[in-house]
């Protein structure tokens, strides 16, 4: 086997091939047209049903987040809306997931799959919430985690929400 080109250009040239091998899913199979694809068929090929996902997520404090009506905001909008307009504004409180964001949803399945396949740990490159989610889900599944996070710029300036997720990891 000839040595692989590991330069930036070399890896980027193999990007599609790498994605197909690592995902085990070829998106081209589901494409109808440049603007549509067969969602149902793609989801059937992932190997998980909706009920299984819900069960897996319940095991690690993910999902079933509360839905709240924002009455003040709804009333404020109706004050300036024509009669009959001004929809009820609801918020799905995704901060109630383990690690504090909706990113726990995808991390939960990755961590479950990694544990099922017998991997020692998982790794993620992230700008914040996904890393915190992976670290939290890995810990709950007894896996090690390496999180690569861009926290600071070259003058060591950071954004509060990003540095907070760095701390959480």
């Amino acid at each position: 086997m000839s040595p692989r080109d590991t330069s930036y250009a070399g890896v980027m040239a193999r990007k599609n091939e790498i994605m197909k091998v690592s995902l085990g899913i070829d998106y081209d199979r589901y494409v109808h047209s440049p603007v549509s694809f067969d969602y149902e068929r793609m989801m059937a090929d992932t190997g998980y049903t909706h009920a299984e996902i819900a069960r897996i997520q319940r095991e690690t404090k993910v999902g079933d987040t509360p839905l709240f009506e924002l009455r003040n905001l709804t009333n404020a909008v109706r004050k300036i809306s024509p009669p009959g307009k001004g929809a009820t504004i609801l918020v799905k409180d995704e901060a109630a997931n383990a690690s504090g964001s909706f990113k726990a949803r995808r991390a939960s399945i990755s961590a479950y799959e990694a544990a099922q396949k017998g991997f020692k740990g998982i790794i993620a490159a992230t700008s914040g919430n996904y890393g915190a989610a992976v670290a939290s889900q890995a810990a709950q599944r007894g896996l090690k985690a390496i999180i690569i996070q861009e926290v600071y710029d070259s003058r060591w300036v950071c954004q509060p929400e990003i540095v907070e997720k760095g701390r959480a990891c």
């Binding site: 090690k144 390496i146 950071c158 509060p160 540095v163 907070e164 760095g166 701390r167």
Partner: peptide, 21 residues
């Protein structure tokens, strides 16, 4: 914390995180 051994330049003792809103 997960047992990896790494080498680099020693920059900070007891590093922490701080920010302002």
């Amino acid at each position: 914390i997960i047992g990896r051994e790494l080498q680099g330049i020693l920059k900070t003792v007891n590093p922490g995180y701080s920010h302002s809103f």
